[in-house]
Amino acid sequence: MTDHYYNAADLGRFSEMGEEAGHLWEKFNGWYTAVFAEGALTEREKALIALGVAHAVQCPYCIDAYSEACLENGADPEQMTEAVHVAAAIRGGASLVHGIQMRNKTRQLGM
């Protein structure tokens, strides 16, 4: 046991997740690799999407991994920062749009 929850070196141990359920890990790995291969979207576009999602789900391992992947695939810090803003805007917008739910409920309950 450790006395903290996140350790950067643990990213390198990701494949240990295959030790107790190898068949599931293999399925995940195959699917994951296929998802990030060049397709209708380029590897660069996919890396930028992944970086945005990594921030939305607030996964430090994914942020490390996809910051590097973005650079490797030719994205620059300006583009990467815009991707993070997209994630942040969706998160912020998602909170705000729930305000309509609040307004609906308020209207229902109010006089």
């Binding site: 060049e38 380029t42 590897e43 660069r44 590097e68 992947a69 650079l71 490797e72 695939n73 030719g74």
Partner: peptide, 18 residues
């Protein structure tokens, strides 16, 4: 050459982008 301590990406894809 990468501008930092990372590997270069997919050459064919980067060539299209460049």
């Amino acid at each position: 050459n990468p501008v930092g301590a990372f590997l270069p990406g997919n050459q064919a894809s980067l060539e299209l982008q460049w």
